[in-house]
Computed example of a mutant assay.
Amino acid sequence: MYAIELPSDAAATIPVERRGHGRILFEAVGLGERTIRGRIEESGFARARFPLSGRRRRALEAVLINTGGGLTGGDTSQTIIRAAETAQLVVTTQAAEKIYRSDGAVTGIMVDLMAQAGTVLEWMPQATIVFDGARVQRSIQAEVAGDARLLLVEPVILGRTARGERFSHGELVDSWRIRRAGKLIFADGMVLEGDISAILDRRACAGGWAAFATLLLVAPDAESRLDAVREALGLPDDLPDHLDAGVSAWDGMLCVRLLARDGAPLETAIRRAITALGIAEVPRIWHC
C-alpha cells in the first residue's frame, strides 16, 4: 500500500488502438457452508483468481489482477461483482493500482457491486496510486439488500511519495452511490483539478498530506460498532502522529474517513479500523 518509485510515463501519446480496456464480471454463490464461484467473464487485462490460501470462515476470497501493470490516459477498467444466495465474498487486488501520467485522455474506472439478501460482500482493494499528471474518473456504485452486509475500503495515495512526488496537476473525479433495497442511502463525490497543490495544502482540505481512505460499512448492526472503531483509531484525543480521522454512524451505516501523511500510517489505521469492526479481516495478500 506504499507509493513506490516507478516510471510514470510510457511514450508521449499512445494511439487509440493501443489503449487498454479491462472488464471482469463474476458471481459468488452460497452453497451450504461454502461459497463457490458462479459465472465469470474476463476481457482485456482484467483477471480474477481465487487462492485457496485466501479462504477463511466460509468466505471466498477473490484477487483481481491487472495484467497490464497499471492504467494510463484512455484506459478503462470495469468491475462487476455479484454476491448471491447467502454468499460471503472478499474482493481485493494483487497490488496497488497505479494510474500513470496522461497524455490528455481520461482513465475511467467503474465498479458495480451487488449484495443480495443474506450475503456478505467485502470490497477491499489495495491502494490506488495517482501519479502526477494523471487524469482519472472513478465511479463506485452498489446495491445492497436490507439484510445484507457491504464493507467498502478504498485507500488513495496522491503521487509517488517515496520519491517526493506530489499530485500537483491532473484530474481526479470520484463518485460513490450506494443503494439499499433500491433507495439511495449514501452519495459521495470529489473533484480535484486546477491548482491541485494549492487545494491540497489548505488545512481544511488535506494540509499537504498525500494519502486518504474511506471505509464504509452498510449493515443492520453497523451503528453498534462506532465506539470500538473510534477507540481503535485513538479518537478523539489520541490519534497517532501523521494521521487524522473521523468516524460517524447513522441509519445502518458506519463511515470512517482517514487522512495521512503517506501510505504507511494510512495502512496502519485501516488495519486497526477493520480489526475493530470485528466482522472482517485484512486480506492475506496485503501481507505480501
Score class of each variant (00 low, 15 high):
Thr93Leu: 04
Thr93Arg: 05
Thr93Ser: 13
Gln94Ile: 03
Gln94Arg: 14
Ala95Ser: 13
Ala95Asp: 09
Ala95Val: 01
Ala96Asn: 11
Ala96Phe: 02
Ala96His: 08
Ala96Thr: 02
Ala96Leu: 04
Ala96Lys: 11
Glu97Met: 11
Glu97Trp: 11
Glu97Ala: 12
Lys98Ala: 00
Lys98Gly: 00
Ile99Asp: 01
Ile99Ala: 04
Ile99Ser: 04
Ile99Val: 13
Tyr100Ser: 05
Tyr100His: 15
Tyr100Thr: 03
Tyr100Trp: 11
Arg101Tyr: 00
Arg101Trp: 02
Arg101Ala: 10
Ser102Lys: 12
Ser102Asn: 06
Asp103Gly: 02
Asp103Asn: 03
Gly104Gln: 09
Ala105Ser: 11
Ala105His: 10
Ala105Asp: 10
Ala105Ile: 01
Ala105Met: 09
Val106Leu: 14
Val106Pro: 03
Thr107Phe: 03
Thr107Leu: 05
Gly108Gln: 13
Gly108Ala: 07
Gly108His: 14
Gly108Trp: 12
Ile109Gln: 12
Met110Arg: 15
Met110Asp: 14
Val111Arg: 14
Asp112Tyr: 08
Asp112Arg: 15
Asp112Cys: 04
Asp112Gln: 14
Leu113His: 10
Leu113Thr: 05
Leu113Phe: 09
Leu113Pro: 10
Met114Thr: 14
Met114Ile: 09
Met114Arg: 15
Met114Leu: 09
Ala115Ile: 11
Gln116Leu: 14
Gln116Glu: 15
Gln116Trp: 08
Ala117Ser: 15
Ala117Tyr: 09
Ala117Lys: 15
Gly118Asn: 06
Gly118Cys: 05
Gly118Glu: 05
Thr119Leu: 03
Thr119His: 07
Thr119Met: 03
Thr119Ser: 07
Val120Glu: 07
Val120Met: 04
Leu121Val: 05
Leu121Glu: 09
Glu122Thr: 00
Glu122Arg: 10
Glu122Asp: 03
Glu122Ile: 00
Glu122Gln: 06
